[in-house]
Nucleic acid binder design. Structure first.
Lengths: 103, 103
DNA sequence: GCCACACATAGACATATGTCAATGTTTATT
DNA sequence: AATAAACATTGACATATGTCTATGTGTGGC
């Protein structure tokens, strides 16, 4: 780190991303999407929730930036956004690194 | 992965850990604790919240397992729990790895 | 024992969250 | 254009969350 550099981390951004994952259903969805792009109907089949509830969760994941969506005919296809996943990954990498080095 | 192995990931545990970090104040606290063990009074000085509100946040972090606490005379000292931080870190490592390899 | 300090707990409150049933919208097929 | 399929939106609701003030609890110094 440069001397005199003011590092004001964007904790609000972290909280928004992590809030999107503060739900069992949505963590599982992200994990599913990490293997493949999927349509809502594929995802819905893995849960015991109604279609509007899934739609609500996908909206939260999309608006957080962790998941991208695109139309494909009748279907909506969802995929993990690599940049924002990297933001979260690096947060925990850094924290783990701090713990390992300083203490 | 072994063939025939049934991998039922503990998404509930992930969600509980991430829910503890789904708040701007608590993410910042975890980051602070990654550098040093700190007492509540040290942490409180960095925020514009009341002492009971901080106590509420520390309870959530402690009960999630992400943060350990111990008494030191009049003070409560808080530190990051390495095992549970590793759980979260590995979750995102795996997801990032899935994205890189499969797609 | 009394006091001050550090922290926890209780109660109250406004807002956010997750869920559903009902309905709307978009797309492709016929 | 009529229909069906996939998904989104709306409105309602119960519960969870984050914050405060007021008060309780534990610790060490005098």
């Amino acid at each position: 780190m440069e001397s005199g550099e003011k590092v004001e981390k964007d904790y609000r951004r972290y909280a928004l991303l992590l809030k999107a994952l503060a739900d069992e259903t949505r963590v599982k969805i992200l994990d599913m999407l990490s293997h493949n792009e999927l349509c809502a109907c594929n995802i819905l089949a893995e849960f015991n929730i109604t279609q509007p509830t899934l739609s609500y969760h996908m909206k939260i994941l999309s608006e957080s930036g962790l998941v991208d969506s695109r139309r494909d005919g009748v279907w909506m296809k969802y995929a993990v956004n690599r940049n924002n996943l990297e933001v979260v990954k690096k947060l925990f990498d850094n924290i783990a690194n701090n713990i390992a080095n300083v203490k």
